[in-house]
Amino acid sequence: MKIGIPRALSYFDYFPIWKTFLDKLGFKTIISSPTTKDILDKGVSLCVDDACLPVKIFHGHVADLIGKVDTIFIPRLISVSPGEYICPKFIGLPEMVKNTISDLPPLLVFNYDLHKGIKYRGKAFNTLARQLGLSGGVVDRAYKEACSMQDKYERMLKSGQSPLNILEPKESWDESIKNKVTIGIIGHSYLLCDRYISMDLIKKIQNKGYNVKVPSNVPDKKIEENIMDIPKRMFLSYGKRMLGSGIEWLKCDEVDGIIFLSSFGCGIDSFIEELIRRYNAREYKLPYAVFSLDEHSGQAGFETRLEAFLDMMEWRNRIGHNFSAHG
């Protein structure tokens, strides 16, 4: 049986565990092709208008898989960490897909809820296997291998590699170049790793000779520490990671500038961006820019803004602490 996995949303965070698990169980996994204009347009036309860009793209990827596979894997990530949630739209994703796309093959809905504890992770995968008619030792072995694959991926990320380098190892990026200037890009992994929709932001910045850091490079311990200072527990996992890494970069002087990559209509971004911007403006005063993406974003305007931002940063580094570049 061929199982299709849409290359969107949480795919970029969890594909090692999903793909390995399904592969080891003996299924053929097919991943939808990288986002193209066609996929985006399809998603936009299928999905409700008010949804955010990443969810629209997810719809496009699901549509892309129709006809190529026997069943489509739709993750329903309710919670990936105890006591936390992700986003209401992630929880309602299977319903959104079911009710807006017609002619769907059967869906393989993967319920994943660790809200009550980490021990439910194994159970979630067991249930997934049972849906596919498998149980017993095969499943345990597949689960173990999948977990170690996921750990490996996360270790690579924590060691400072850009997720794009891991995802697309062919286009290797020379690790030996150690640039002086580092830019931190805050954003959801599904924006940063999608080269079409993020207009290849990571590569663009790397090609101009800068180091890039993304939130998934920041160790969990640091995130937890930084979050403690916030008056209320951050209960959204992605939000927590972005906020925690933002504060980390502001505090530790690790980066020379911060770019916040946000998508139009993202509810979490609107709050996290506001907090980071206000903290930065009040105390740290690092160069900071917000790039907002939607289905109409133009490449030229995006590039101009990026160049302007980098120029500003360069001026500031060169001229030192003269007032002009500090705004």
Partner: peptide
Amino acid sequence: SGSCGPCRFGYYGVIQKEILKD
């Protein structure tokens, strides 16, 4: 009143405090 997810309403208090402070 507050809540702890998944809706962002739970974080209103924190954001609003920062806004009012500024």
